[in-house]
Design a binder for these strands. Structure first.
Lengths: 208, 208
DNA sequence: GGGAGGTTACTACACTGTCAGTAAGTTGAG
DNA sequence: CTCAACTTACTGACAGTGTAGTAACCTCCC
């Protein structure tokens, strides 16, 4: 309990092996969910037995958390040196993300499935997603605040709602898109909705 | 194979018993998901063994489909005689639904969890949710078309996107709300977003 | 030679679905 | 009305499978 059995030392090629495992886990959890994504399936993707995976990560729960942490860190790498965008740039960035996502349904599915699964009883990723949404809502709110300051307008009380709604529409569209890619345009629709919501807040047409 | 073992006859009290099972199943699938919601847990809610449940529904997959069908039919009952709303009334109805949903987190959780789970490999409810979204998008599109005709304006090409976005934002908000009810206002935010999206399409302020 | 990176072998469950059997109800012929 | 023939609504036991985790051992790099 007290010493939570940290992942052992770190030879450079071992680290790469772990990353392979994390990517494989993302694939399996994405296509079957966490609870129903067996360790054996992850293991065989990297030519190993499931016991080997447990050697590296200790438990399945721990593996899930490391998977989520790993994706966050590799997403952040895209920003190396280039500041996390703020103000209107944040909204542009969200729209770009939607376009990127259209090229990687695997990742999209993993987040869609895991975020919804996380609301079930005692799910190990519940806290992760709670914090994730809280953080993202805050960033969007701050972007709105910056824009309002730049334009010298008062901050409308709708900012909080718009922040939640923007994340919501992006997530919700992902589910519809995964179910019916023929008839749902993920990126274009996200862009439309974000523009509509931003306009509703800062009543402006000078857009994104 | 050919004769799919239809559910047996139908004594009136038996039908009520089945409905009890369906409600219990909704509870369990809602709190744990479909794959991870064991039949035994459903069974003990209605004081029965899991074999009894299989006697009534044949298989767990079949049970899930009947659960979804049952909820649809009991939702429709609310409309007995009162037409399914169209035009601007549809949007009012969607907002009212969001307010109703705030009083029944169990149902909300079931739909949130199951719809996301349905995108996983070979999920028995995949087709159900595909059709559900297709139908709902069509209804929203038709509401937009009616409004446009009533106001004598051309139908903007954004109608399809707005339809998907409205459903998306409602679904996405549910997940955020389930994770953090303190800080997310499900109904108010849904109303705000729907109004914003409707305005973006029919550029009007005479609203919902 | 000692520890990291595994494997094999195994335990301990959890879960769905099958089956035989039983008790209670339904139905139709006389 | 009644009894026999049948059906429905279960239970209890169990087979079969899948799965996380553990323990003991191997083996090869530093």
């Amino acid at each position: 309990m007290s010493a939570p059995k940290r992942t052992p030392k770190a030879r450079p090629e071992t680290l790469e092996r772990r990353r392979e495992i994390l990517r494989a886990a993302m694939t399996t959890f994405g296509s079957k969910g966490y609870k129903n994504g067996p360790l054996t399936e992850i293991a065989e993707q990297v030519d190993m037995t499931h016991a080997g995976i447990l050697h590296h990560f200790g438990s399945k729960d721990q593996l899930l958390l490391e998977v989520l942490k790993y994706r966050d860190s590799s997403d952040v790498e895209d920003f190396t040196n280039q500041r996390i965008p703020d103000g209107i740039d944040l909204f542009r960035h969200l729209i770009r993300t939607a376009f990127t996502n259209e090229q990687r349904p695997g990742i999209v599915q993993a987040y869609a499935v895991l975020s919804a699964e996380s609301v079930t009883d005692d799910h190990p990723a519940r806290e992760y997603f709670q914090e994730r949404y809280t953080t993202l809502r805050r960033e969007i709110r701050e972007a709105f605040e910056l824009i309002c300051r730049q334009r010298g307008i008062d901050e409308p009380p709708t900012i909080d709602r718009a922040a939640a709604a923007i994340l919501a529409v992006m997530d919700g569209l992902q589910v519809q898109w995964l179910l019916d890619r023929e008839n749902v345009e993920l990126a274009e629709t996200s862009a439309f909705a974000i523009e509509a919501l931003v306009s509703a807040v800062i009543g402006d047409k000078a857009e994104v």
